[in-house]
């Protein structure tokens, strides 16, 4: 494949990974109003777990158990879900701003563990992740194949999420987002719903981590900085919380902006760091979204549950 096409495939695969993350955050924040600033933590858990599960045995890190790629994805999701359950069980009833701080702290600690426990994760050196189904196509077409796989995962997830939120279950989530006391007055177990959503969303972050790892084939703690969390927040808030298509478009646009800024390095004077510019732009976007367009580009659909298709 030529350079331009290769870059496009790379870019799209990256966007798909973030699309998965955005769908996960949308179920938490967009539909339920549940604050999770620990996205990067679950993302990391998923990536490392999938790497352990599918990798070849190594004395330098945990695993590899040589399991098939889909099994790795499922286990990555499961373990992320368990992390979410352990974290969420005590803290789910906290007020949203406390929850924000606790989840951000959680993600930082996950990263600390990855950096510190070198025997398990190879620490800051990072570890390799296999390319699944590598022998199916010639090497030069592999990235295209993997884009297809990632898109398939995204599509399945999208359908499942739409089904979930356009049901009475999703309507209950919207209710507790709008007014917890109303939800309680009509018999909804608010903490249970929130915990379900924390776990489900975090499983999706874990899935994204696994898809990311097999795409990048190399993961280090630096792939899971707090900034990743806020990148996803920008995608969801700008794209339109509560609208799955909106947040996918948000993911595509923000990723596009991110990669696009690389071309700035040709224009900008030498010595200006593109990383700093990117971070500044993401920060500015967060400020602007809240100040200018808090409901995002695409609003939420009017009808909560459309299971009857009317």
């Amino acid at each position: 494949m030529s350079g331009a096409v290769g870059f496009l495939v790379f870019f799209l695969t990256y966007a798909v990974v973030y699309g998965i993350l955005a769908l996960g955050l949308n179920i938490q924040w967009g539909f339920t109003g549940l604050v999770n600033f620990g996205v990067a933590g679950f993302f990391a858990v998923g990536a490392y777990i999938a790497a352990f599960m599918t990798g070849t045995p190594s004395p330098y890190h945990l695993g590899g158990f040589g399991l098939p790629f889909p099994v790795g994805l499922l286990i990555a999701m499961g373990v992320s879900g368990i992390f979410a359950l352990i974290l969420g069980f005590p803290v789910i009833r906290l007020r949203e701003d406390y929850l924000a701080i606790v989840t951000i702290g959680f993600a930082e600690i996950v990263r600390l563990i990855i950096v510190t426990e070198k025997n398990i994760t190879k620490g800051p050196y990072g570890m390799g992740v296999i390319k699944p189904y590598k022998d199916l196509v010639p090497a030069s077409y592999y990235s295209l194949l993997y884009l297809g796989i990632a898109l398939l995962v995204l599509a399945i997830l999208y359908v499942a999420m739409e089904r979930a939120v356009r049901s009475p279950w999703g309507r209950a989530l919207r209710t507790l987002r709008e007014d917890e006391r109303v939800a309680i007055a009509f018999g909804k177990n608010v903490n249970s719903f929130k915990l379900q959503v924390l776990v489900l969303g975090s499983m999706i972050f874990g899935l994204a981590g696994a898809v990311f790892g097999h795409f990048f084939n190399f993961i280090t703690p630096n792939h899971f900085l707090p900034m990743e969390t806020f990148l996803v927040w920008v995608m969801v808030m700008a794209g339109g919380s509560g609208n799955n298509i909106g947040v996918l478009l948000g993911a595509l646009a923000v990723r596009g902006l991110w990669e696009g800024m690389m071309f700035l390095s040709d224009v900008l004077p030498r010595g200006i760091q593109i990383g700093a510019i990117r971070l500044a732009v993401i920060g500015l976007l967060l400020v602007l979204v809240v100040m200018v367009k808090p409901e995002g580009i695409l609003g939420e659909k009017k009808t909560a549950s459309d299971i009857l298709g009317e």
Partner: peptide, 17 residues
């Protein structure tokens, strides 16, 4: 809080720049 986070990212990068 979200605006505050945005400012943190922005200001921190401005230090780098």
């Amino acid at each position: 809080m979200v605006v505050g986070i945005g400012l943190e990212l922005f200001l921190r990068s401005s230090v780098r720049l």
